[in-house]
Design a protein around this nucleic acid. Structure first.
Lengths: 363, 363
DNA sequence: CGACTCGCCGGAAACGTTTACGACGCTACC
DNA sequence: GGTAGCGTCGTAAACGTTTCCGGCGAGTCG
């Protein structure tokens, strides 16, 4: 049921002290929002009862409750969130802080988060703090002034922490897709499972000489994925660390081919790397996916789809991470006990054309 | 001055009815925020005076005002935004609605917006409404419940409108970088100026046979840029409309070269198109920037920097658009008279390597 | 038939600000 | 010295909810 501003006059029947007064409020020019007291008056109950009726609290005849609800619906009543917040000491608001200036990771997370919370009437207060601690502190303070009930922190990539110390913040904090303190509630993609998914897919297609081209070894995600890759592909399978760029993907092919290693399946640590790899192979006259199958990571569709051929890649489900962050922060706010520590959400494989074949034999 | 939670005990000196009572509130476990009444008590004035002192309203001795301010600082007082909102009927909050799921355009805008507003204590409530009108309505209603003072609407590209009718919304709306109703306050990049910048740059480098490869003609931005391009390059200069993709840039080169037209300067409607163009030229053995100079549009650094050679491109200043949107929405909220209609903010050229040469002769 | 119980509902006090209005003390002038 | 006038500050009523607690009606049992 959606709310529309009252464009007509509204009859308020106020019954007070036994005598019933009918008054009319003209709202041609400045439409006043319906207040709870208006609903109460129209339903001929007290404000207290109206509040309880609508919130499902308190005890009263089912008939009364229904009547209040019907009246509220008819009048298009929507509670004033400010008043509600002031009174209940809960703002029904969570803050989302990010340092991902491009939004590539953050926006899907924020979207999942806000969708997970909007049905509870919770909205998301967002701000982007570059890497300036002072500005970050100012944004955080503004959120705290606004009595946010919880905080979600996200970032541009795992391993780059925000310039903020949230240890003393008096509200629940959930870290999503960013570096988190040891004992915090945090959420990331399951890199190991994602890497296995990719590697299994390659070997399922009959690719036996696998290689992994990925980001810097300092990144936990890169290390975890590399380890999972070796679990499947064998301890001797080559793993090349570089940076997260196309240029590195390009260079890595030069290095592999220069060494005479000729993998027939390459799992890449990001779609950008994969794109560099595919381009380098094409330039060398190596056919993808004929000669070599490629799997990327991120499912950054703008890159994955523009690559020729379009990339088969691992999707981290950022939206899902956002939704789960919403669930967790809500649980924490409501006082539920949520075990601290990292949580990993499964990735899924998005199949496009860069691997050839169809499903692996095993199905 | 940043706010830190009080970790020590706080002496409150309450003077009431002439007699002064000193009481102590222990806050070892649950730190209570300092309220205005605490400040007032400590400064030995009334709550009203304290409020006026801190807000710079009302009249009082400069000494009193300073004393209250000093006490507030010392106590680390931060006003409760909910109470303030309820009382003053202004939530000090603006909503940002987008339908840009990737965040490529939206996040810079939101960042500029929130930075423009944070110093006034205004924060940004954000939500991403895909293209579902029902969900969009729900998000909007939640924001209105929260009494947002204004709304900024942004999108993934000019010309795709949000599935929302904001005509009846009782608060100011500013459209930033998205399709807007005729008489609304809206903000976009100055496409004509940006296109002239690019084209001038190319001819300044001595390129005389210019072409323009851009997005669909249905997009106003594409039409405007094309017109500006022809203003500079001459009415006969070829303009090729396609979609906003790399593939189209690639294909466009095939078409141009197939026709025997051999431009020596190409202005592209997006960095993605430019990338396709550059790749296609390389594949044909045409040297960029030796034989042909390329200019892109968007300064999407992740694409522009990954292209070989890195793209010289037009930056639309999305952050600036966000900041200006903040200024405008604040002005509207404060009742200032802002002329309706579209506003265009200047673009700037970011010079990388895809044009060769250095600055044009004219400087 | 009266008292006790129980369930439904209402009165009123919060929540922490802002702000209209009025009181009070001071100076200055007649 | 009384009073007008001005400038400071305090009292109290908002803002729109939630929630504690108590009253009051009806039903039941002695």
């Amino acid at each position: 049921m959606s709310f529309h501003w009252p464009l007509t006059r509204i009859e308020k029947t106020v019954s007070h002290n036994g005598k019933s007064v009918s008054q009319e409020c003209a709202m041609a020019s400045a439409p006043t929002r319906i207040r709870l007291s208006d609903v109460a008056a129209a339903a001929e109950v007290s404000v207290a009862t109206a509040s309880k009726a609508l919130n499902g609290t308190g005890r009263m005849t089912e008939e009364t409750r229904r009547r209040v609800r019907d009246v509220a619906d008819a009048l298009g009543f929507r509670p004033n969130a400010m008043a509600r917040a002031l009174s209940s000491q809960r703002s029904l608001t969570v803050g989302l802080i990010t340092n991902d200036s491009y939004g590539r990771f953050t926006l899907p997370v924020m979207s999942g988060l806000s969708n997970a919370l909007v049905d509870d009437g919770i909205s998301v207060l967002m701000s982007n703090v570059e890497d300036d601690p002072v500005a970050a502190r100012r944004h955080l303070d503004t959120m705290l002034d606004r009595q946010v009930d919880g905080l979600v922190v996200t970032g541009r990539r795992i391993d780059t922490a925000l310039p903020l110390d949230l240890a003393e913040v008096p509200i629940p904090v959930v870290y999503a897709f960013t570096a988190a303190p040891e004992n915090a509630v945090s959420l990331t993609a399951d890199d190991a499972q994602g890497a296995r998914l990719a590697t299994d897919w390659l070997s399922g297609l009959g690719r036996g000489r696998l290689a992994h081209v990925t980001g810097p070894e300092e990144f936990a995600a890169a290390r975890i994925r590399a380890a999972a890759f070796r679990d499947v592909a064998g301890p001797g399978a080559p793993v090349l660390h570089g940076d997260w760029s196309e240029a590195w993907g390009h260079a890595a092919i030069g290095r592999l081919w220069g060494q005479g290693a000729r993998p027939d399946g390459i799992f890449c640590g990001s779609d950008q790397i994969a794109r560099g790899v595919v381009d380098a192979l094409r330039e060398r006259g190596v056919d993808v996916p004929g000669d070599v199958s490629i799997v990327g990571f991120d499912n950054w569709s703008i890159v994955a789809a523009a690559t020729r051929p379009p990339l088969t890649t691992v999707d981290m489900g950022l939206g899902g991470i956002g939704r789960e962050a919403g669930r967790l922060v809500r649980a924490l706010i409501e006082g539920g006990d949520v075990a601290p520590g990292p949580r990993r959400l499964p990735c899924r494989l998005v199949v496009r054309d860069s691997c050839g074949g169809s499903a692996p034999a095993a199905g």
